[in-house]
């Protein structure tokens, strides 16, 4: 039978986890999200299995519209009313297990959002209320989290995230893209969550700032936090992620150690994505993106896949972390390029 794609679960032998963190883990099994529209159903996430744990960074990559942001929002119960969520998401912490799918909003607000799981939303400028200063919004978040002296704490957070405290007194439209990003980072970490969901945290930053942001994420991991990084920047993912999961049409189609998935992908979509990078072939994957309202029964990538055959009319099983009937062979699988892996595959398999 089909083995689930499990990303982020390999034990890292070199990096010891702090003892308090050992009981923490987030595990999704068969996470599925669809949106009901008047005349159609959008299948945004289909049966995602993954795991995130302290000390590790899992990067989620894939075509725009494939379901990455919806997946992140589903973990926090932040989807609109027309969304239907099924499957399981277990949050293990402090010796307890909390099922997040279907959890009451009050529980999510009191115990999960901001406290256990912080979210840096995509396009942060659009998530700030335009009529209130960044400070008013950050202080409100801090008060909700029960901070004793929100004003001092806000200044402290600002400085830690590379902002001048006076920057907080600006209204959202007076913040540059990079500043809005830093305000969002400060908000997400205000409640000291152990798991951070970072949705495109570097778009709009130049290379030195991207590098700094990635180093900061890595530091969070090394301090014992877990990071789920959603990014289009495969060079950034390469620098910081331990594991990479590739999503296509709402499914995780390949997952594994970062070096392997980014440099020697085996799923044809993952290989096409890797080859499209501007530092590689810079050619788009041919054909149109899938319509999530009319997904085929078999592999959703088939209309664009040069390896497609008759077998592809039925859903591919997942073997070795790859959901494909005809994966590229292990030895000569390539996505172009050959920079050394951050961490050799062998050491992770120990």
């Amino acid at each position: 039978m089909t083995e689930p794609i499990t990303a982020g679960s390999a034990v890292h032998p070199a990096r010891a986890e702090p003892p308090a963190a050992q009981t923490r883990r987030l595990r999704a099994e068969g996470l599925t999200v669809s949106f009901r529209l008047p005349d159609a159903t959008v299948r945004a996430v289909s049966g995602a299995d993954f795991e995130v744990r302290p000390g590790r960074c899992l990067a989620l990559v894939g075509e725009s519209g494939c379901g990455k942001s919806v997946l992140a929002h589903a973990l926090l119960g932040l989807l609109p009313g027309n969304a239907e969520v099924s499957g399981r998401v277990l949050l293990e912490q402090d010796g307890q297990e909390l099922e997040l799918v279907g959890a009451p909003q009050a529980v999510l607000a009191r115990r999960v959002r901001g406290r256990s799981i912080g979210l840096i939303p995509q396009s942060p400028a659009t998530h700030l209320t335009p009529v209130r200063t960044a400070r008013a919004q950050l202080e409100e978040a801090l008060r909700e989290l029960g901070a004793a002296r929100p004003r001092e704490r806000a200044d402290e957070l600002a400085e830690r995230h590379g902002l001048h405290p006076a920057d907080l007194d600006r209204y959202p439209h007076e913040l540059s893209g990079g500043m809005a990003q830093r305000v969002a980072n400060a908000m997400a970490l205000a409640g000291d969550p152990w798991l951070l969901l970072a949705d495109e945290p570097t778009s709009g930053l130049d290379r030195p700032l991207v590098d700094r942001a990635m180093a900061a994420l890595r530091e969070l991991c090394d301090e014992g936090r877990a990071v789920l990084l959603i990014t289009h920047d495969l060079r950034a993912a390469e620098r910081v992620a331990d594991d990479v999961a590739v999503m296509y049409a709402g499914r995780l189609v390949e997952a594994g150690p970062a070096g392997k998935v980014l440099h020697r992908p085996r799923h044809p979509y993952a290989a096409g994505l890797a080859a499209a990078r501007p530092d590689r072939a810079f050619v788009p994957i041919p054909g149109m993106p899938p319509e999530l309202t009319r997904l085929p029964d078999g592999c959703a990538f088939a209309p664009r896949c040069s390896a497609a055959g008759a077998a592809c009319a039925v859903p591919p099983p997942t073997t070795g972390g790859v959901a494909c009937h005809h994966p590229l062979p292990e030895q000569d699988a390539r996505g172009g390029g050959g920079s050394p892996d951050r961490d050799p595959l062998e050491s992770r398999r120990a």
Partner: peptide, 10 residues
């Protein structure tokens, strides 16, 4: 900047 590599190239 908010597009994946393939959509960017496209």
């Amino acid at each position: 900047t908010m597009l994946d590599a393939s959509t960017q190239a496209h």
